[in-house]
Design a protein around this nucleic acid. Structure first.
Lengths: 327, 327
DNA sequence: CTGAAAGCGCTTACAG
DNA sequence: CTGAAAGCGCTTACAG
């Protein structure tokens, strides 16, 4: 009666409900799950990150809000593994190992094909945050949520060109797929306008040194003659590094150099001038993950299209027309 | 046999283990939990925050790592409530409502006595992140983890005094207990040296406007004659606001004004000069929460001391001796 | 419309 | 040392 909509005498129903209220009765979830063979819990696995960065914190927030609205809980787990380990030999965390802990998992962080394969082989329904999926040859239909960094990147470069910039540089380590995609959009826009590209794509040693990377990148790019009049940094931290170099060298932003980043971190509005960048609606990414996950649990085997969340160019004072030629 | 250490023929044991391996057998957690009446899951409740900020993301990371090491899982849930709602009328999220979902909860975010009371009345073991516990009259023994902001704050002010500063200002909204504690340490240090205090403690309208608050604070403080030679900002965002004002007005840091914050956010090293601040070892806060939680679940009723995690003064270039008097 | 029984997959005493 | 039984707290068919 408590669960179903049986035909029952309204009076009886009321009395039972009253007793429930009175005693503070709450059904035991494990007994229920044992018999129904279903779980309302979704695992959120953060892979290969030593801490929860603001981006993933935002995705997790979105995931939790969406899940709560659909009466699901979120089990948070981190997971570190080597890309080369064969799928069968991966040491999986309990979320991916124990029977019944979760009804499915959202794989966030940076993932590789071996983990995806291991999860698939165990029959655990899963959704992958696609932008950070590295080295995946064949596409993964049915289970990916992306944010669309290409469109905004293209728009960003097109806007710089429309302002009059011709020497537009790009900076970002190409081994990281997010930078590779942003660069591809940059190359495409530049090619469309028959403009020569200027790139700094050196390998990045430590994931924590984006700012230093940005300083080095702009330093190198400024050695060229003629120098770039605009820099599209692969992310905001790289942009902040470039900004610091300008600050030290007295290069005016946007007078001498227009600067744009990607991510819209909190600090984007704190530097002076505030940074033009691209915002990823992380809460929508999280929501999309949950919606796909719930749909997949409800209708197993039913095909679903991958989802792509649009991103938004956020225009701020760090860009403007290029300096007059020959100045 | 799988669970216990019974005396069994080694050969039989080996054969069973082999079969387990072969079939990929994993026990069903719900059946196990139903019979053992225990859960290895700990709830992490983020209260009254609309998103997971870097500080709490760090605590959550610490909590998850410590929990994983002790073979516990983390259920992440957010919870928004009004401080005035009577405990009995609070609408609790499933972690705090369902029977058996978790063995206990860590209450992070900003909490009020009504929630603490509701959780206690339901008999759910809990640990509270004490620094953000507001309006709690009687102390909560046995269940609090704090970070010690007083010692580092005092040390910070003492160091400024030792450098020769006499006019040291403080900025932070006193209704927020973390600012109140830092201010108390400031007042104490100033009193010890018989120095007059200079404060900006206006109410802060929006939690997202710390930077603007910092700009306003320093603006007001600089109207005084003589002006302060150092500012202890209640947190890094307020310090960044002050830094921006200095940047715009051409006030040199630390030549004209020494600046210090609290939190050691990522941006502390990105501003120029990098910011002297206080670092809270968030992972240790998280670990302490888990350790107390597990201890409390294992030995119910056993008294435990509250824990206080030391913080660390991080000296950077944003402070130095005061300008020569009368300059 | 209502009550009693079976069974979900385990663990834990207990009998062989 | 090993196997069979009882029972954790539910839900779901089924008999009354």
């Amino acid at each position: 009666m408590v669960n179903g909509h049986e035909r029952i005498l309204p009076r009886t129903r009321r009395r039972v409900m009253h007793a429930i209220e009175l005693l503070g009765y709450q059904p035991n979830v494990h007994a229920r799950r044992l018999v129904t063979q279903s779980v309302e819990t979704i695992g959120f696995v953060l892979s290969n990150r030593d801490f929860l960065n603001p981006f993933h914190a935002g995705v997790l927030t979105g995931v939790e809000h969406a899940a709560a609205a659909m009466r699901h809980e979120i089990l948070y787990a981190s997971c570190v593994y080597a890309p080369e380990t064969p799928a069968a030999e991966l040491e999986l965390p309990p979320v991916l190992r124990s029977r019944g802990l979760v009804g499915g998992v959202i794989l966030a962080g940076t993932n590789y094909p071996n983990l995806v394969r291991a999860v698939r082989e165990r029959g655990i329904p899963f959704i992958v945050f696609g932008n950070n999926l590295v080295r995946q040859r064949q596409s993964l239909p049915d289970c990916c949520v992306y944010y669309d960094d290409a469109s905004s990147s293209r728009e960003l470069v097109e806007r710089l060109i429309a302002m009059g910039h011709r020497r537009i540089a790009f900076a970002g380590d190409q081994r990281q797929p997010w930078f590779a995609r942003r660069r591809a959009a940059y190359l495409q826009a530049m090619a469309r306008h028959h403009l020569a590209t200027m790139e700094y794509t050196a390998a990045l040693d430590s994931p924590h040194s984006y700012v230093a990377y940005g300083e080095a990148a702009l330093g190198k790019l400024l050695e060229r003659h003629p120098a770039p009049t605009a820099l599209f940094a692969g992310n905001d931290n790289i942009a902040v590094g470039a900004w610091r170099l300008c600050h030290r060298r007295g290069i005016k932003i946007p007078g001498d150099l227009s600067l744009a980043g990607f991510d819209d971190l909190e600090m984007a509005v704190l530097i002076d001038p505030p940074l033009t960048t691209v915002r990823v609606p992380v809460d929508e990414v999280g929501r999309a993950c949950v919606e796909m996950m719930v749909e997949k649990i409800r209708r197993p085997g039913e095909p679903q299209a991958n989802r792509s969340i649009p991103t938004h160019l956020v225009e701020r004072a760090s860009w403007g027309p290029p300096p007059p030629e020959g100045a």
